[in-house]
Design a protein around this nucleic acid. Structure first.
Lengths: 224, 224
DNA sequence: CTCCTGTATTTTGTATACATTGTATGACGT
DNA sequence: ACGTCATACAATGTATACAAAATACAGGAG
């Protein structure tokens, strides 16, 4: 915990947002571990700002599910049990299915081309052996679908759900033997969207998320 | 807008939570109208607290989707277009279906008895001609199902989605001609759960939410 | 009359000071 | 030795002061 969090001041944003992003990143990357206390004074000193933006950032983390606060005792990084993970994945599966069904109806030709690009980018990224890149490409693929679904609230929710399991997802993507499956599933989803075949894409997406679920759950179990 | 918001200080809660609840109520009840600015100094003066808890409450409202803030310009009550409403209802429908399916597998005998009570309470409340009571009874019915689904994250999400359309829901429940349909649907869902017949309950729930959707959308159109 | 500009005012952003509560430590009595 | 209470310290809760930005408006130039 002694590593120094540093603010990315480039953006011209209120400090609360900069702090929020910084803390979120730190939590998702595992630099701030589940259960670790988030003490205002300490964070303020570390990040070189006052307590006010820290407090507001914590309120935001709280509602994102990344932190929990007990009144008069302060905040700590949210813990995630296997049950929590299952619960999140269940919701994600359902909403991902909805998203891809909606996309089936609404996706435009241009968005299909972008999606095709995302599929290709993902394939290429897996050859780079750079997990960070793979994760980014995967996010891009799913984002393209979310955007096509044309439901901003749904997109928000799904991004949030994804975020909540980011820590485990990165571990998951380190398993290179899973890449061929992932690539095949992406292709299947893409092609289903081209044919606008709802049943196919829905089934493919459910399978896709389910595969993640199995691997992520194994991973959690191994961690203990 | 000149009505005086007053804090319910009874509870032993941080002021930010009291303020948050107060503002949320005010927004949901329509006392604070969509688009209305939420000025910190003004709210602080009105509620008799300082700006700090107001600011933190606004950050919380923001992530609940009840307020939107533009940096350096401040916050305002979130507006909801018909499209927004459709988007929310689409998500709600999907998640309500998931919840009731999960409940089908997991509901206990005791929870079934509670649900039966909720069905009966709802029927009785419709005879009282007290919209507030009817709304409460409806919430209780759905909450019983959410609890049975045994997925706290899902329950949170659904409560939040419900909240986002509370304003319109209350209007919706003023239409007494809809009561018999609602009662019948509740019964259908309850009986499906007793028989643990997933297909039936899922279909019934989808129909139930869809009916709401139609009425609420008509309502919005009329408002213009 | 319109548009620009500069200033005054309002409002948010940030920092800090003070108050209150939670927690740990240690003395004291049993 | 154990428990209880008092006190000290640390962290959060709240209020206020100051800074910076956005807005409104008035006055002047074209």
């Amino acid at each position: 915990m002694t590593e120094k969090l540093t603010l990315n001041m480039n953006a011209y944003l209120p400090l609360r947002d900069v702090v929020f992003n910084t803390l979120r990143e730190a939590i998702l990357k595992g630099e701030l571990k589940p259960g670790e206390r988030l003490m205002e004074l300490q964070l303020a000193a570390r990040l070189g700002v006052s307590r006010t933006p820290i407090r507001e950032a914590i309120r935001m983390l709280e509602l994102e599910g990344l932190a929990v606060t007990v009144p008069r005792k302060g905040a700590q990084v949210a813990k995630m049990t296997e049950k929590d993970m299952e619960d999140v994945l269940q919701i994600r599966q359902t909403l991902d299915e909805l998203a891809v069904k909606l996309a089936c109806d609404k996706i435009t030709e241009q968005q299909l081309r972008l999606l095709k690009g995302a599929v290709r980018d993902f394939e290429e990224s897996t050859r780079s052996r750079d997990v960070k890149k793979v994760a980014q490409a995967d996010v891009a693929f799913h984002d393209a679908i979310y955007r096509a679904a044309d439901n901003p609230k749904l997109m928000n929710l799904l991004n949030n759900l994804r975020e909540q399991m980011y820590r485990y997802r990165v571990e998951y993507l380190k398993d290179e033997t899973a890449y061929p499956t992932l690539i095949a599933e992406h292709r299947e989803i893409y092609e289903g969207l081209v044919r606008r075949d709802k049943e196919t894409v829905a089934a493919a997406m459910v399978k896709h998320v389910m595969n993640q679920e199995i691997v992520v759950k194994n991973m959690i179990r191994e961690q203990e």
